[in-house]
């Protein structure tokens, strides 16, 4: 019988594991979107992606951008950096999430490392497999994790990242609203995990009439509150 008790450090790792796995999933989606736009000659799509995701590493040409956003471990915004961060957090909570669940992060990391030989072009097939593994990761959390607090912390991380990325990329308000509603539900379940003041402030800003992600002042304010929302 497993003992259900968590330290603050593990709580923090679970939260960040939730955030990073969601970021990986969404980055994969957005990268594929960039690739698709490239077909029709919209070469600026990568630049937009870079600025929205907050990458500060300069790349010289389109090829370097494509490789860098996937394989450049020195760029914190790259896919491989996100997977490494997810892995660092997953390894320290193995006994909470199970080796089976951890396996999907490990598989993703190894697959990307193997496919990312120095200057190789990112492999679209591998990227799709990573998406599948991220979905499998969350399926495994549902199936194999019995401690509700563990699940909740992972999902809080996932939802916070979901809101963050949707804001950055200016997605429609209903996507944010849905995530915020679920987050409010978890707030009731684990009130101590949240900065209550920040939560109220966030709710006041994330209403349909006020939602304007293209406005940088608004966007930065919401992202900053979001960054302080969880206090583990």
């Amino acid at each position: 019988m497993k003992t259900f008790v968590l330290s603050p450090a593990k709580g923090n790792s679970l939260y960040w594991l939730g955030r990073y796995t969601e970021r990986i999933y969404l980055c994969l989606h957005l990268l594929r979107k960039c690739y698709d736009m490239m077909i029709d000659g919209d070469t600026d799509e990568y630049s937009r992606y870079i600025s929205k995701i907050g990458s500060f590493v300069p790349y010289l040409d389109e090829g370097a951008i494509r490789r860098g956003l996937v394989n450049d471990a020195t760029n914190p915004a790259s896919l491989i950096s996100c997977i490494e961060c997810a892995n660092d957090n997953a390894l320290v909570v193995r006994e909470e999430i199970t080796s089976h669940t951890l396996g999907y992060v490990q598989l993703s990391l190894e697959a990307l490392r193997k496919s990312s030989k120095a200057d190789a072009e990112p492999n679209i097939d591998t990227l799709q497999t990573l998406t599948d593994w991220m979905l499998a990761f969350w399926g495994s959390v549902e199936e194999r994790v019995y401690d509700n607090r563990v699940k909740t912390l992972l999902k809080i991380g996932k939802l916070v990242e979901h809101i963050d990325m949707n804001l950055r990329f200016g997605y429609k308000f209903y996507r944010i609203e849905e995530a915020l509603m679920t987050l409010s539900f978890y707030r009731k379940e684990q009130p101590n995990a949240f900065n209550q003041e920040a939560f109220d402030e966030l709710k006041a800003l994330l209403v349909e009439g006020m939602y304007e992600p293209e406005n940088m002042t608004y966007l930065n304010k919401v992202l900053s509150i979001l960054g302080n929302l969880v206090t583990l």
Binding site: S7, V92, E95, T98, S99
Partner: peptide, 16 residues
């Protein structure tokens, strides 16, 4: 970490 998972024990880190 593996033995913690298999025995159901809590994996404690320094400071826990």
């Amino acid at each position: 970490s593996y033995l913690a998972e298999k025995t159901g024990a809590v994996l404690a880190f320094p400071g826990d």
